[in-house]
Design a binder for these strands. Structure first.
Lengths: 227, 227
DNA sequence: TTTATTGAAATCGTATACGATTATGAGATG
DNA sequence: CATCTCATAATCGTATACGATTTCAATAAA
């Protein structure tokens, strides 16, 4: 499910890859920031060779960008990029759910329900996004399409950190919970189209929230500049 | 549209990357075959460093696999992998079409029609897959989602070569052409749901054809083993 | 004949080395 | 005071070097 290839975890380059990936996804590295190969190598106690391997993989993941003769920089995610990723998420998650429902067993429903119950009981906003992720994983996983699940996981890892604060805090628990319950019920009923339709609305609402938030931020920047 | 990142085309590693990618996608390298780093380096007149960079990128693309302390091998695509990719294609292309239709201009319809006309006129089976690809690209491109188009292109490049002989030759021109015309007409009418439904059927039929073909091949292997 | 042993060759993963290009900063020039 | 050399330092991209592990084949043992 992780999206990150599992093989060869022992190699030196993998530590570098993992660390850099984590720092970029967590937003601890600014977009556009130069990734000095010698620095990274020294920090990890290795040479430049494994560092470059790690950077090339991150380049393929669109997390870093190589500028000819000037090395790698952290790729910045534009507002448009983010919205594009959310549209792709709609496609991937809806398809996964559609394929998953016919394979769901009673235990899947129970697990999903348990997550929703915990969701409901938890007063901790920080847990919400974790529980949200688990619910989505839980209902999509039965699709059995590993590559699809891996893709979804990749996008979640990239998109999640960027929208979490922006959405979870603002939206509250009411609406998403209602949609989650509705999706689960449709899954129980084997109502594929209903479930997918609700999931689609669910994600598209998120996208609209993000878009609105970005709009406001943009507006703020403009008016601030005018002052 | 190519899926292959465009930056840094000048670097030595890029030639290696490009060449290996092409060889793997074209099927000129068997699945499981070892990719000897020194050999590749010598063939391209470079050292192992850029070769390893190329291999790491291909690993991220799922085209090669690193075995600890045994280097890289060409990743073989199982029957299940192939069917999984076709399911993902359904998700991606349907979403792209859905997003594309509201943005289509008259010139898009004309271009699509021109491709279909050429399709119809061409007696050359080898051209069919090329024209098919161009038609799909043409109706999806207006979606404006670069990442989505790039993903679609990646999957097309991986899946295409594996199913072309298997499907195009067998299926003939009748059914796909009829579906293509129907999709285009729905696009003209702005009938998003109809267009998407037809496209979905279109790809799912392909998937069923591929699955059937694989089933027969598998059966043949079993009966051959029994002899 | 088949299976184990073992030493040489091949190959990997990574460190080090180095020419080439790009950033940096001090002093010259307007 | 701004800005324009140009030498120096920093950094890149890649080649070469090397210990460690794996493969392989020839020989010994069963």
């Amino acid at each position: 499910m992780s999206g990150v290839p599992k093989e060869d975890r022992s190699a030196a380059f993998f530590d570098v890859y993992r660390a850099l990936r984590e720092e970029i996804l967590a937003g601890r590295l600014e977009g556009g920031q130069a990734l000095r190969q010698d620095d990274i190598a020294q920090r990890h106690g290795v040479s430049k060779v494994p560092v470059r391997e790690a950077l090339r993989r991150l380049e393929m993941e669109n997390l870093v960008e190589f500028l000819p003769r000037r090395g790698a920089i952290v790729r910045s995610v534009s507002d448009d990029d983010l919205l594009e990723m959310l549209d792709i998420r709609v496609a991937l998650e809806c398809r996964a759910l559609e394929l998953a429902i016919p394979h769901m067993a009673e235990s899947d429903f129970e697990l999903a329900q348990a997550i929703l119950d915990e969701y409901q009981a938890s007063p901790d906003k920080k847990r919400w996004s974790e529980l949200n992720r688990r619910f989505h994983t839980c209902i999509l996983e039965p699709c059995g399409n590993r590559q699809l699940l891996s893709l979804i996981s990749d996008f979640e890892q990239r998109v999640g950190p960027l929208i979490r604060l922006r959405v979870t805090e603002v939206t509250g628990l009411e609406r998403p919970m209602k949609e989650h319950r509705q999706i689960l019920q449709s899954c129980r009923d084997g109502a594929v189209e209903d479930a997918v339709a609700t999931l689609r609305t669910h994600i598209e609402t998120t996208k609209r929230e993000v878009a609105a938030s970005l709009r406001r931020r943009h507006l703020q920047k403009i008016t601030a500049a005018d002052q």
